[in-house]
Design a protein around this nucleic acid. Structure first.
Lengths: 256, 256
DNA sequence: TAAATAGTGTCTCTTAGACATTATGGT
DNA sequence: ACCATAATGTCTAAGAGACACTATTTA
């Protein structure tokens, strides 16, 4: 009976999609040392990695890296595989962004795209630039990507959505850690936040981050074996205390 | 040249998915008046609407309502259509939850499901119970749905994820408004929050919500034409001030 | 008048926010 | 000695948190 039903089920009765790719918005925070001045914070910029398409459709246009999902993997698997292909590395923060399914968004047919965003380090992208010599690779600031380039498909919308999301995550989670070494100073952290969210201003940042009860627990100071606090003067004359993120992710509420 | 490429492009070169449905976790907050006592808050419970499947696969099991996306609509359109079909109403909060694509999750083939969650009012679900007499419809508490029922597909995971998400949204956004009349008392609001997030405790709720600067702006008291504050004694002996949500959505940050 | 819920008073300790001041090392 | 950045001091106003207390209505 159940077998009968199963046999009578026709999986191709309706029109089905022509493909389900995973596209990845790869963010990186470039870090350029300022040679003219010593002991100062590097210049940081938030950039997104794009590749120039070689084939129809949108040949010659810049687009997000991505690839089609296969039958034996989940969308997340496909994105992980794609990220690995592009960077040569397994690591990096990879997070689902959303689905893009507006009819007609892809001239190849009914293609439903799943967007992810990844936070990778700059050196990971050099891998791609070296290996895939045929495909042109570019790193663009968000302003360039959103205002100056003519992107393929609806990738402009995807990048815009990803930008909103990464800004939100930067303020509400500890993803800032993805853009920092394990040990960092508070001005580095502040700079990273401001690079991703330029509107963020907090005059008493050091004091607040170290003294507020609700924030206690997301950072801890770094100490050596004897329990002495460690500091660094890499970016400043006076050495600055080093901090690291704990495993705590704070839970915010508008009512508390 | 570009036309050549287009003609040579074979959209069916690879295996493609067999269908892309939208499934909806429909939450409702039931409200039962307590007849024994007068002037008291109703009993509220968070419930999820499920339908009993009639056909293979998982015939006889409880499952989320849903339907396949068509070529001429986006996934969100499909979910909107589905919500309308189930409730007979256009309104209600509908929000994307995520994609479920683990290989083998659907015995019918390669089927990639998109989950949404909706917040609807209880009366909206009576429509379905009346119209679709063939399909059995049920309202279950989250405990029942997650711990007692044997659900179809991976709908257990979807409901669990939706539950986490609605709890998060309840604390970080003003979706509580979806479960309240336009004008409500603060104890009603408190009860709604606690019904969705039982862990939420806030002894000085009235004072905090009305006096904290960071929260100022999400609620405003209701006044009549002459500017007199309005109150209600529907649920209490002493009349309570009525409030309404404003259009402000607060922005939270762990660093501020 | 008792019961039930709404809302305020009060007190202590912590935090916010704005600036001024001191500290530490490099040039 | 001077500069740049790190970090603390200081002061006021506001909020957190806990509990006791008063207010307004119905039964």
């Amino acid at each position: 009976m159940s077998d009968n039903e199963q046999q009578s089920y026709n999986v191709k009765k309706y029109r089905t999609p022509d493909g389900v790719p995973a596209d990845i918005v790869m963010f990186t925070l470039t870090k350029r040392e300022r040679k003219t001045v010593t002991k100062t914070l590097p210049l940081r910029e938030l950039k997104v990695m794009l590749i120039r398409r070689k084939k129809w459709p949108y040949a010659g246009k810049w687009a997000l890296p991505g690839g089609f999902c296969q039958e034996d993997e989940s969308i997340y698997d496909a994105a992980t595989r794609e990220l690995k292909e592009e960077t040569g590395v397994d690591g990096g923060h990879l997070e689902y962004l959303g689905v893009y399914s507006t009819p007609g968004r892809d001239p190849r047919g009914w293609i439903i795209s799943h967007a992810f965003f990844a936070l990778v380090e700059e050196w990971m992208l050099e891998h791609r630039q070296a290996s895939d010599d045929a495909g042109e690779v570019g790193l663009f600031t968000l302003k360039e990507a959103l205002e100056e380039l003519d992107l393929a498909f609806d990738h402009h919308d995807i990048i815009k959505d990803a930008y909103v999301r990464i800004q939100q995550q930067m303020l509400q989670t500890t993803i800032a850690r993805q853009f920092l070494p394990r040990h960092f100073t508070l001005s580095e952290l502040y700079q990273v936040i401001q690079t991703v969210v330029p509107e963020f201003k907090e005059p008493n940042f050091i004091r607040k981050i170290t003294s507020t009860r609700s924030r206690q627990g997301i950072l801890q100071d770094v100490r050596d074996e004897e329990g002495n606090t460690l500091s660094s003067n890499q970016y400043s004359q006076r050495p600055a205390q080093l901090y690291m993120f704990t495993d705590n992710e704070p839970l915010l509420s508008i009512y508390t």
